[in-house]
Design a protein around this nucleic acid. Structure first.
Lengths: 350, 350
DNA sequence: CTGAAAGCGCTTACAG
DNA sequence: CTGAAAGCGCTTACAG
């Protein structure tokens, strides 16, 4: 039979408190608290007595009482604001989550996940996060128009975002890849390989990743005296579906393209079969470069040349930065360098 | 500039408390509390005064103080214990999560997610969940050997599992599809279509879904006087990879098979190309039936006949049952019926 | 090194 | 209908 929660009114035996432990150990409960919090000024005997009493009574601290007294919760949230289908489609989230969990393993912080993919869920998440349930929030893939941003900022919740938050650069700390530099290096690689009519499948323009990778594309063309043709620029939303669709549109608008730089591996992956179906060989007729170096990239046919998105470094820095922000430091934007990974979809120029 | 958390020691202005609201409204703070909790015995004037004062001060209740006083947290956890890759591969989790969020939208409960896919994460999750941070836990796809189960049960955390928890049937409430009946109906459909050498790709035998669907398979064969051949039974772990591998093994061991019942759509999906590669036409040479009716099923080639897993009903019942368990009711096992969805991979018999 | 005491911000019987 | 008061279980200066 399931026992009701010990703290439920009037049911079951009561959960032991710090006073029970103190009585059991023969010390004051202040001493128990000192042991619990690893503070100094506890004699070895007292320490031992308390440890044993805790074991005997099965004591576990009440987190609410502790949080009320200290003013912190001991947990941070990993907040996903994408529509849920994308969330489970995009491996970047999974990798980032794994990295954050890893980075947290040394610290006294628990990670909780929240998904806000509908307006109702958003309001609930905001209420929860701004109410003090968590000490801070890791914001994943924020879009600049999201009303959640203003609410969270107004509630003064410590935040670190993955990618700069457009319009909030001064108030929300962020960790981002060098999206612009990475994109530029990708396109310069294509230029070095002899491509002159390079198209791009850009990401959403309300995210810094989408904007910066498009800027990097234009930077490279301009630097090499090549025109930036609107017909060679298509817009996707990171998903495979949008990648395929945009690739088809590009082939229609700019049939003479000799290379494609896609702002994500997922979109590049979807572009490959579209090119094949149009009779273009990759890389012979059209070179393709992606962005992310997700698990996907190496398994594609042909394996994808791509810009490595250093999500391991990013998640690590996000956690470090969030603890700083929680401690009251002013916001900061951290940028992590990228690197180009050459594979068959666009090998090194001969 | 980011303001530090208002509750941080010695920084920023203090967050308003119930006393500030009371002063502002010209009532006692007990009255404010009554308004906050929607209790009776508040005059309309007092009510209005408090409402206005709350708006003016921007008051939000401190959840820790409230939880300390009431003994409940107002949140429940959705706990995933699968290795993370599976989690993002299996659409069932996503659908279940969506359903639970939906079911919760009418209640005063916030949903938080926890992922425990490594031993370290498991220990942290157990500490968090059994410490009183949440009022209850929704356990998704528990495996009977998981040490987390014993820890959670010992800590007397209210739990509702998706699928019966083998070995814990008496202490952990659960909501499951009629896996056995659903599997049986799938195999009876194959028998009715004239198949006599039906193979199965079973799920993991430490989950009730895996066990029951295999039982249902055997039930149908036995009921129709057909032998249950070990060579026609392969074991997967729900993943596509395992589905492909198991299908190959079955073709080796039982090359004369004329139908395959896979315990999940994902495994069925992976079996299809293996059959094709072996020169078996679906459904002409080999009929294939899956289980779940996930989004995948209709998009396969050929579209998959499958047993509908009623995850919407299941998530709804899980939430309802968990509130019961939290309220102290004894455990219960709820079973939701399934139905067979016919598509081209095994159409209705002529 | 240790204990008594105040305080964290609420809820909830208990008197009125 | 409303207020004064106890209590939820901790932490943390403050005396000793």
């Amino acid at each position: 039979m399931i026992q009701p929660v010990p703290t439920s009114p009037g049911t079951g035996r009561k959960r032991p408190t710090i006073r029970d432990v103190a009585r059991e150990a023969g010390v004051s409960y202040a001493t128990v608290s000192r042991v619990l919090n690893g503070r100094e000024w506890v004699s070895p005997e007292a320490f031992r007595a308390v440890r044993d009493a805790i074991a005997r009574t099965g004591y576990r601290a009440n987190p609410h009482a502790r949080s009320l007294a200290t003013g912190r919760s001991g947990s941070i949230a990993f907040l996903l604001t994408e529509p849920q289908h994308l969330l489970f489609e995009d491996p970047n989230f999974s990798v980032l989550l794994r990295g954050v969990a890893q980075a947290l393993s040394g610290r006294e912080l628990t990670l909780i996940l929240m998904i806000a993919s509908t307006p109702d869920e958003r309001d609930r998440a905001v209420a929860y996060l701004s109410g003090g349930h968590v000490d801070g929030v890791l914001l994943v893939s924020p879009h600049s128009g999201d009303p959640l941003l203003a609410q969270l900022v107004r509630a003064e919740v410590p935040i670190v975002a993955c990618g700069r938050v457009l319009g909030y650069e001064q108030v929300i700390s962020s960790v981002a890849a060098d999206d612009r530099g990475g994109a530029r290096s990708a396109v310069e690689h294509l230029i070095a390989a002899g491509c002159r009519r390079i198209a791009t499948i850009a990401g959403p323009q309300d995210t810094s990743g989408g904007v910066d990778r498009l800027h990097g594309y234009a930077d490279a063309l301009t630097a090499h005296g090549l025109p930036v043709e609107p017909d060679r620029i298509g817009h996707g939303d990171w998903t495979r579906g949008s990648g395929a669709e945009t690739m088809r549109a590009l082939l229609r608008r700019a049939p003479d393209l000799d290379a494609v730089f896609a702002a994500s591996d997922a979109m590049a992956a979807a572009a490959l079969p579209v090119l094949r179906a149009a009779g273009r060989a990759v890389p012979e007729d059209v070179r393709v470069v992606g962005f992310d170096d997700s698990g996907l990239a190496a398994t594609l046919d042909p394996p994808l040349t791509t810009v490595r998105h250093p999500l391991d470094r990013i998640s690590e820095e996000m956690v470090r930065l969030l603890t700083d922000v929680i401690a009251g430091r002013t916001p900061l934007a951290v940028t992590v360098p990228t690197s180009l990974v050459l594979r068959s979809s666009s090998p090194a120029p001969a």
